[in-house]
């Protein structure tokens, strides 16, 4: 487990790519900061919950549902997980 607070943004990105590959079979090269979870990566709302749970376990953080609403892109997720707000 990597500490979200000390991980670099590229470490978070590669970690999220691994999560998406595992949970949704998303090709790693598609996981870029500007990619939208729904439109670009075809992640539906149920799968997004799985992604969130996997991220919580991976980085030992808590991503509340309110934060999830603003998390439209891969970059949004990286911002939140790396911000220290996810505790």
């Amino acid at each position: 487990m990597t500490d979200a607070a000390t991980a670099t943004r590229s470490e978070l990105l590669s970690g999220l790519a691994e999560v998406l590959a595992e949970v949704a079979g998303t090709p790693t090269e598609k996981v870029v900061p500007e990619a939208a979870f729904d439109a670009d990566l075809d992640i539906d709302s149920l799968t997004m919950v799985e992604v969130v749970v996997a991220c919580e376990e991976r980085w030992d953080v808590r991503i509340p549902d309110e934060a999830l609403e603003g998390m439209k892109t891969v970059g949004d997720a990286l911002d939140f997980i790396g911000s220290g707000a996810a505790t």
């Binding site: 709302s45 749970v53 919580e56």
Partner: peptide, 10 residues
């Protein structure tokens, strides 16, 4: 409960 699969019901 937060680890229960969101795919449980379907």
């Amino acid at each position: 409960p937060r680890r229960v699969s969101p795919h449980l019901v379907p």
